[in-house]
Design a protein around this nucleic acid. Structure first.
Lengths: 279, 279
DNA sequence: TTGACATTTGACCCATTAGTCATTAGTATA
DNA sequence: TATACTAATGACTAATGGGTCAAATGTCAA
């Protein structure tokens, strides 16, 4: 519908200049030259508009990049094309890029939106990882996640250059420059930091259900069965009691968590517990 | 004043969880257990609280990092120390780090705050550039700004790993890993992108006023009032006299600076003084 | 022209916000 | 105890927010 289009366009301009929260529906409707009621005919709420915007542009963005990467037979051009497509897309939709940078993932309180952003972020991760794999196959298995983060870091920081100042950049040189940096890192990096386990820990959804005490206790019971007698097992037992009937001082809880956090099989459980007990 | 301290602490917790705009003064006062009026006795407005928070933590952050870089004679450890200090500071003040990441510079409409953030950002740039210069002198003149951006990009993206998930990271390994990446980039990069002109275009000149003797003396007076009788206070008084009418030999000045640089409330003042007196 | 229907409006509602100020509670001195 | 002073309160205001809905306007076939 044309009305939706109009609202999305005009709202994006305002969001880019002021941010979500500081932009009122009133302002949007004035900027569109329509009434408040008309806005609520097109979108059920302000949040729905935001979701629509994110969806619309992220889909476009992701598919742009995916296209640039998938349709390259010559590996020599892969990285260059990837960077070029990325920054070109930022240019084409610079207002959206601005919003994206400003509302750095979670300014918004809307849980749905956070999940959505995380979803798109993981899609992008997949694309980049596939590209890394295609370029270096398994010679970089141990450094692939570090490479992923380096690439994302480069994009993030070089984006700021032209998103927050209105300087016109030489996209060709920029892409070549980042290609250069990436290749150098790929073939010389010797101290990787990010393991696949770390990735899993940081990406796993923090949905409410998973953080319910019932779920956590069940999970702890499972781990207790797996463990032999040890400090870890004893700590887990104490923590479990504390969850069912809180009575330990914070300092002791922290200490107990410290006892288990380095055990290779307890990383997930200690992640859950930290979230549940310390927030 | 203790009340200010309390409000700042409690407000930071809420800001970290919800963001500025979504946190009301009401919520803050409830979380502090004080009345609304008491809040407005401590701060003239919500904005003033935000400014105070930013100032307080950025000063601490910048001086932490500056300290870690300036007090290293062995170049081998420079990068490692820099990264370690950076991430360690994020850890120590993780709520503030969260706010900083969330309100990615300009969610806020307040013009003063944007300028302030830019100011601190540029201070950090200066520190990093000085470090690069010390490490590689002029062999990297053409790539120094790219190196600066790579370092900032790495910090930005690796920060997200632990700021937005509650994973406990191995700071030592992380620092080594980023040191590795940085050194590799420094000695292999061949296609620089960022020229000094580009830097100038993208950032406004730094605020020189803050480095004027008047400003520094005013700042010292403030600190002197806060301090009880102590070596630090006496040192500050002597330094103040020296600024107004220089007559102490360099060695004494350095000694006096040494007296104050470890006091937790004097980090910023000693950073300013080091810049003013020793450069 | 009429009437049935779809689209659009903006005054209105209620919740929430930042910020104020007359009043009260607390404390130290005479 | 009386007095003088500061620190703290919370009911209050004025403004703004998102969202609603009865009424007005527009459309078109008969």
């Amino acid at each position: 519908m044309a009305k939706k289009q109009l609202i999305m366009e005009k709202a994006l301009e305002l969001f880019a200049a002021q941010g979500f929260e500081s932009t009122s529906v009133q302002q949007i409707t004035e900027h569109c030259g329509i009434s408040k009621g008309a806005f609520y005919l097109a979108f059920k709420s302000k949040d729905e508009l935001v979701v629509a915007l994110i969806d619309h542009f992220m889909m476009q963005f992701i598919s742009d990049i995916d296209h640039s990467v998938k349709n390259v037979t010559n590996n020599q051009q892969l990285l260059y094309n990837f960077y070029y497509a990325t920054f070109n897309s930022f240019y084409k939709h610079s207002d959206f890029a601005k919003v994206l940078m400003k509302e750095q993932s979670q300014t918004i309180n809307n849980h749905e939106l956070i999940l959505k952003m995380r979803y798109y972020d993981q899609l992008l991760d997949k694309i980049i990882l596939a590209m890394i794999k295609q370029l270096y196959d398994n010679t970089v298995e141990q450094i692939q996640y570090d490479l992923l983060y380096c690439i994302k870091g480069l994009i993030r920081i070089y984006s700021e250059l032209f998103i927050f100042s209105n300087v016109q950049l030489d996209l060709d040189l920029l892409s070549k420059s980042l290609e250069d940096k990436t290749k150098i890192l790929a073939s010389n990096m010797t101290v990787p930091f990010i393991t696949s386990e770390l990735i899993q820990l940081s990406q796993l959804p923090i949905n409410e259900e998973e953080l319910s005490p019932q779920h956590i206790v069940k999970f702890i019971d499972q781990k207790i069965e797996e463990l032999g007698d040890s400090v870890e097992k004893e700590s887990l037992l104490l923590i479990k009691d504390h969850i069912l009937e809180p009575r330990l001082p914070q300092a002791i809880v922290i200490g107990l968590l410290g006892n288990i956090q380095h055990h290779p099989h307890l990383k997930w459980v200690s992640y859950l517990l930290r979230n549940y007990l310390l927030n």
